[in-house]
């Protein structure tokens, strides 16, 4: 950084700035979704945009998720650059055909002749006591669909840079914002900047083991790394940032160095994206491993409502620490 003090902003403001900048820069960009205009978004991410750009660029839609994604597909295929919002990722169930059979496949099915520059912004995550249909982390399901890119930023800085890149990208990108991150603060330069999709970030360098994570769980991983450091264990924390395409290089480079891996995510562990990361390491770096890869993820149930149950469901730093210790030779655990 050349400037002495980089401006601080929160994740919500970072998203807002990216949207504002891109709508202003490119007349083909528009934002559409339920209550994104007049109400400025369920989490306030589109604050001020209707006032600045008017109802043709910032569009309140009916409650019609299939229609919203479908109109984005049609508008993109005919030359515009839509950013559409699905209020909670859980509601993607309502419009899954448009996401999986239309948006993701059109370019390929048409022999490469279509261009689908669509960003689907949505929110994920538990911890706010809104139960099974408003709390899920469904990234693995989306990563399983060729044709989609899947981005899950963990910091305000990344949220802004990655969203700008996602909007400028000519492919469909599902951009997943964790609802507990909107208020976290961080350095966010005022000017627009891009961060490449498909490139992970080493959040904390370390030598003894690698913790791979993304979205809100990155912050749990960093807290776990602090605890481990007190026990003399130096964990390297990798934030994938983009799950699809996956930055195998950064993960493998770290494994070559540390020989031990924990993969931590909030989503249900079984069938989760952690399995993909573990499989990558098994295929490409098994000879480097000194211990089995350990995954941390939620138990195999829907997200329960009752706070005691939801807290028991949510993966946390303690589980990451325990998982890390399991990968270590016994003497370091004592």
């Amino acid at each position: 950084m050349t400037t002495a003090a980089v401006r601080q902003a929160n994740y919500r403001e970072a998203i807002n700035e990216a949207l504002r900048g891109e709508i202003e820069r490119d007349p083909d960009v528009f934002l559409a979704g339920e209550d994104v205009a007049g109400h400025e978004g369920s989490f306030g991410a589109s604050a001020g945009l209707l006032a600045a750009f008017g109802p043709e660029r910032v569009v309140d839609t009916p409650i019609s998720e299939s229609g919203i994604i479908g109109m984005a597909v049609g508008a993109a295929a005919t030359g515009l650059r839509p950013v559409v919002e699905v209020m909670f990722i859980d509601f993607i169930g309502v419009c899954m055909d448009q996401v999986l059979n239309q948006l993701a496949k059109m370019k390929y099915m048409f022999g490469g002749k279509a261009r689908l520059p669509v960003v689907v912004r949505t929110t994920c995550g538990a911890g706010v006591r809104v139960a099974a249909q408003h709390s899920q982390s469904l990234e693995a399901m989306l990563c399983h669909i060729p044709g989609l890119k899947v981005v899950m930023p963990a910091t305000p800085y990344d949220a802004k840079g990655l969203l700008i890149s996602a909007i400028r990208d000519d492919n469909p990108v599902v951009f997943i914002e964790h609802k507990l991150l909107y208020r976290i603060q961080g350095e966010v330069p005022e000017e627009p900047y891009t961060l490449p999709l498909g490139v992970a970030e080493v959040r904390r360098p370390g030598t003894d083991l690698t913790i791979v994570s993304w979205s809100a769980m990155v912050h749990e991983a960093l807290a776990a790394a602090d605890e481990l450091a007190q026990r003399g264990i130096h964990a390297e924390v990798i934030d994938l940032r983009t799950l699809s395409p996956l930055d195998a290089h950064t993960v493998l480079t770290s494994v070559h160095k540390t020989h031990r891996v924990v993969v931590a995510h909030e989503a249900v562990k079984f069938g989760g994206f952690g399995g993909e990361v573990a499989a990558l390491i098994a295929e490409e770096a098994i000879d480097y491993l000194d211990a089995p890869v350990v995954r941390v993820g939620a138990p195999f149930s829907p997200v329960p409502f009752s706070p005691v149950l939801e807290d028991a469901w949510l993966p946390n730093r303690r589980q990451i620490v325990e998982a890390a210790l399991r990968t270590m030779p016994a003497r370091t655990g004592a």
């Binding site: 859980d90 509601f91 169930g93 249909q133 408003h134 829907p302 329960p304 409502f305 009752s306």
Partner: peptide, 23 residues
């Protein structure tokens, strides 16, 4: 305690649940 307000239900009364998904 699994459902909360948005999923409250009483199948014995034929009440097949509040619903968090509009529609």
């Amino acid at each position: 305690g699994k459902g909360g307000s948005m999923h409250i239900a009483d199948l014995d009364l034929g009440m097949l649940g509040a619903n968090g998904i509009v529609g």
